[in-house]
């Protein structure tokens, strides 16, 4: 009996996951269907671009700086064991472009903007603002989800560029100024080891992550039920699901791309 109940529970979980995935896929499809339809609400869209992009700039730059610095420090510790300190620049730049930049930027945007999106849409949902939109013959996917998903898709890669650049600067600072690696060697090895596709694949990843986190956050927000507690629940879910999805998709993309 216990075993059967356990199996049923597992089945429920799996079905729930499938439903979530299906709903998200539907949301994405809806976004795509609404994308070409007027009105285009340029100003509204720019508001979202600013919210997700410009206002995340500081936190992304900060995390980029410190992740680059700590990468340099850690890599130096490893490289010193076989006298490969000169590879530090390349190692930092490779890690930043391929992995740390896209993932950390996406996670920071999830924490800052994804949670806010879920909370905002959740609140709109429970205060009937979403119904009000529908009653005014405006589709919430068109008005609420589409600009956010699009902004995520556009802004997360751009934020990643900033993150990577500042991370490399941070790595340079630690490697050259603090650990005393020759600046010429540092730059040379970096340029030598990193190829353009490292950068572009990283940016492609962050585009996917941006899409994912915006999609998940909007989906969760629009699903909110009840009151403040419901909003809190979907906000937490939005962050947790986005972070998990980013890391899982990161592995799959890395396995596919590189």
């Amino acid at each position: 009996m216990m075993f059967a109940r356990l199996l049923a529970r597992l089945g429920d979980l799996f079905l729930g996951l499938l439903r979530e995935l299906g709903e998200m896929a539907m949301l994405l499809v809806n976004c795509l269907l609404w994308l070409p339809r007027p009105p285009y609400r340029i100003r509204h869209f720019f508001g979202q671009l600013e919210f997700i992009g410009v206002r995340s700039l500081f936190i992304v730059a900060l995390t980029g700086l410190f992740s680059g610095m700590v990468l340099a420090l850690q890599a130096y510790y490893g490289f010193r064991k076989f006298g490969g300190e000169s590879l530090l620049g390349g190692a930092v730049a490779l890690s930043m472009t391929r992995e740390i930049g896209p993932v950390l930027t996406s996670l920071m945007v999830t924490a800052r903007a994804g949670s806010a999106m879920a909370a905002e849409l959740g609140t709109m949902r429970v205060t009937e603002q979403v119904d009000a939109l529908l009653a005014m013959a405006v589709h919430p996917v068109h008005y609420l989800a589409l600009p956010r998903v699009l902004s995520g898709l556009i802004m997360v890669p751009l934020l990643t560029v900033v993150d990577v650049f500042i991370g490399i600067l941070g790595g340079y600072f630690v490697g050259v100024m603090l650990l005393g690696i020759n600046p010429g060697t540092y730059m040379q090895k970096m340029v030598e080891m990193v190829v353009a596709s490292d950068l572009y694949n990283g940016l492609f990843k962050s585009m996917v992550f941006g899409l994912l986190l915006a999609l998940i956050s909007c989906h969760q927000g629009l699903k909110a039920r009840g009151g403040a507690q419901g909003v809190g629940l979907v906000t937490t879910r939005a962050v947790v699901y986005s972070a998990v999805a980013i890391l899982i998709v990161d592995y799959m993309l890395t396995a596919l791309l590189f």
Binding site: L49, V54, L158, V161, V162, F165, L199
Partner: peptide, 23 residues
């Protein structure tokens, strides 16, 4: 927001171009 977004996008694209040229 248009101006801020514009500046940000410009800066990010410049950085991207710079890094692309470098590598």
């Amino acid at each position: 927001p248009e101006v801020k977004v514009g500046i940000f996008v410009l800066v990010a694209l410049l950085l991207l171009a710079y890094m692309s040229l470098k590598v």
